[in-house]
Design a protein around this nucleic acid. Sequence first.
DNA 1: GTGAAAGCGCTAACAA
DNA 2: TTGTTAGCGCTTTCAC
Lengths: 355, 355
Amino acid sequence: MADKSAHSKIAKRSPTIRDVAGRAGVSTATVSNVLTGVRPVAKESRRLVLEAIEELGFKANHMASSLRKGNSLTVGIVVPNLANEFYGALVRRYEESAARTGYELLVAASGGQPQIEALRIESLINRRVDGLLVVAAADAFGTAPGFPAKLPPTVLVDRDFGHPQYDTVASDNLGAGRLGCESLLQLGHRNITLLGAPELNSAHALERIDGYRQRIREAGVAERVLVGEHTIEGYRSIVEQELRRHDRPTAIFATTHFGTIGAAKAISAMDLKFPEEISLLGFEHAEWMTAMRPYISVISQRVDELALESWRLLHLRIAGVKFRLERIRLPCTISLRESTREPLTVKSLARKRAT
Amino acid sequence: MADKSAHSKIAKRSPTIRDVAGRAGVSTATVSNVLTGVRPVAKESRRLVLEAIEELGFKANHMASSLRKGNSLTVGIVVPNLANEFYGALVRRYEESAARTGYELLVAASGGQPQIEALRIESLINRRVDGLLVVAAADAFGTAPGFPAKLPPTVLVDRDFGHPQYDTVASDNLGAGRLGCESLLQLGHRNITLLGAPELNSAHALERIDGYRQRIREAGVAERVLVGEHTIEGYRSIVEQELRRHDRPTAIFATTHFGTIGAAKAISAMDLKFPEEISLLGFEHAEWMTAMRPYISVISQRVDELALESWRLLHLRIAGVKFRLERIRLPCTISLRESTREPLTVKSLARKRAT
DNA sequence: GTGAAAGCGCTAACAA
DNA sequence: TTGTTAGCGCTTTCAC
């Protein structure tokens, strides 16, 4: 068969809608209509077009259509750290939602630095993303020097809840703090040390601490809050010190995943019976915990729902649906396992009573 | 000041290069030249343009320039699962490289299914990505029905090493298998059970097993390979069975991260002295291991280098540099910690000798 | 139901 | 050094 195109040598550039139109003997408009389904196309024309597409291996250039249509079907996602398990789980869910609805995901990492976040977001805006899902590098999102003046529809997740300008979705951190404290109190603990994250640049770490404080005050029990460097080693060393005190706590409540690991490490480094002599309530379930002895009790965020809800809001905003600023708090869940027990004293008393 | 534009109402659409040109009193070409730096621009013109850009809050439409230039400065990355720690670490490094070089990253997940992989890659091609970094869903990458006929420059990472068509970068899995076996042999173990991953859809799991086999045969020791369902529970149950055998091994070598967790779980569920009675060599270091007692010895992939090398190759291909198909194997590293010890018998003998 | 043609916002000849 | 203009590949009026 003779090649219709001008250059019959190697076809370097990929075929365009024009090539398809030529081959099918119709206009580009008809090809476009077959592709988009915006207007009806006669059966015969459609067949010809589809054939031509097949034969040429034509793939519609999404950038061209985006440029023309003025939307990119692309969402940008910005997180502090892509290697983080929690954010990884978020991104995974976003990708699922995106793939399901014909969107693609442009990912960027801020490293927790507002200036970098500003830069990365600017770059995403240049790509004309339809919307942005952001785990803010710091509170007061959008105030870094050089931050773009106008963003596309944006939803803030996990951090900087209650931002005055954007919809926000986050876990009920205060509730999580209360819940953890409550469960320890119910077991009979009266000497509970909270291992909190330093404020750093987001207040959301403080919310969990506040929850603990609220609940423990209601119980009329003395509070004790430890805050250290936000690294496993930092948490380990501070917990180790704590466990050496004469007035050692009977339970530790870590409100971060790192804190959980650090505390577990500190406990196993000491000569304490775990969990008999010291209870540990951690944060954020992870696969490896199933291998720990004792199996660590934790409070976990509902990452799937965080992703779903934030995606839903963003989707509505992109669609132009008007509604008041949304602020969604999702409850955390507690998984009581082996690392939380009633303190020794209470247990002994109970036994005595029983006999 | 009077508004020059036709509609002086609300400026809905974002300013274009034309708006900037008008405001600065120059041509669009000059604005473009200021933006791209392709041709020199007089100082005064540049100042005017920059001012106009600032005042209008102009952001160059990357899609338009891509369409015109024929490159998107975008790389697509496809992995089986975005929530996986290993792939998360990869993506993080890719993002760093991308941000550093002006690229953006479009991410997609295959769920380990070649058909989905084909779909997602097609979608990325429609977006005209300049290149693709893929952790293949299965070996024989690119053979699924409906797989795009022609890909942009593509580098395969971790899986399907040695693909006949694309550059491939992966860890030296065979070497890793040998290395692990070797280190256990050196400690004096002669009864080493290997906990391998099922072949599933990638032979790369078998390579590690083969490495173990090679080395153990060289040593003239009986081999024993266990392969189960690729889940923590699957591994746990199979290891638990193994540990109940009368001829129980003195060491277990898990060649996957899941296997490591499963084995650790099985061991701590049994009444064995760990690591005195049973050694465990795992795969892939993780933060949580620091909290385990004993601290688990592992062989780890050099994920940073995998990312760097694959990015480098892709970059060269995108730049059009011609070179033969590259196949890069990166060695794994071993971290000997507390979970691997000499077996009891040997130890006792050594003690006797010492006295 | 279909085609011709304008144009999305930018870059790259080609002139001047 | 600068401006004019013709597209990049698509969608979308507006005619027919």
